[in-house]
Deep mutational scan, measured.
Amino acid sequence: QIFVKTLMGKTITLEVELSDTIDNVKAKIQDKEGIPPDQQRLIFAGKQLEDGRTLSDYNIQKESTLHLVL
């Protein structure tokens, strides 16, 4: 699992595989929060994550926290 922190300070827990693409992750956030993926920007280690890449491409591990910017 990974964590996604919103600017409102809310933390969302997502069940993911490290082979999941950023697209997949955004879809899971949409399922939980109702935010359309095209409005989501995910940040990790100061970098904006690109849709076609996977979590492992960015060296994101289990229990990592991503930041969601709208």
Rank of each mutant, 00 (worst) to 15 (best):
P36E: 09
T6Y: 05
M8T: 15
K62A: 09
F44D: 14
F44H: 10
I35S: 11
G34T: 07
F3C: 06
Q1F: 12
R41D: 15
P36K: 09
E17Q: 11
I29R: 00
A45V: 10
S56T: 08
I22F: 03
Q40W: 15
T6K: 02
K32C: 12
T54L: 09
Q30H: 05
K26N: 04
E15D: 10
T65P: 15
G46R: 04
E17S: 06
K47Y: 14
K47I: 15
I22M: 02
T11V: 13
E15R: 06
T11S: 11
E63R: 08
D31M: 08
N24M: 10
L55D: 00
T21D: 04
N59D: 12
E17M: 06
L14P: 00
T54C: 08
Q40H: 07
P36S: 08
R53L: 03
D20E: 04
D51I: 05
P37L: 12
D23Q: 03
T11Q: 11
Q40A: 06
T6C: 05
A45I: 14
K47F: 15
T6G: 15
Q61F: 09
Q39V: 09
Q1E: 15
Q40R: 02
K28Y: 06
K26F: 14
D20K: 13
T13N: 13
D51A: 09
L49H: 00
I60T: 07
D57Y: 10
P37I: 12
K26E: 06
L7H: 15
Q39K: 14
V25R: 00
I60K: 02
L49D: 00
I43P: 01
T65L: 14
R41E: 15
V16Q: 05
E50M: 13
V69S: 04
L66W: 01
P37A: 14
I22Q: 08
I2C: 01
R53W: 02
L14T: 06
I2T: 01
G52F: 03
I35V: 06
P36H: 04
V4K: 00
A45W: 07
N24D: 10
E33N: 02
E33T: 02
Q48K: 01
G9H: 08
L70F: 09
F3T: 08
G52E: 11
T54M: 08
L49Q: 00
L42G: 00
Q61W: 10
N59S: 12
R41N: 14
A27F: 08
G34Q: 06
Q40S: 09
E50G: 11
K5Q: 03
G34C: 04
S19C: 01
Q40E: 01
K26G: 03
N59P: 13
I2E: 00
T65S: 12
T11G: 11
P36D: 11
K5L: 13
L7D: 15
A45F: 08
L14M: 12
L14H: 01
T54S: 11
E63T: 04
L42W: 11
D51S: 05
E63A: 10
L42Y: 09
I2S: 00
D20N: 07
Q40K: 04
L55S: 01
E50A: 07
T6W: 02
V16W: 08
S56L: 04
D57E: 14
K62E: 14
K5I: 14
Q39R: 15
L18C: 03
V16H: 07
T13V: 14
I29H: 00
S19G: 09
S19Q: 02
K10W: 04
K28T: 11
L66S: 15
T13S: 09
L18G: 02
G46I: 04
S19H: 06
M8Q: 14
Q48F: 05
I12N: 04
G46Y: 02
L55M: 02
G52A: 09
G9K: 06
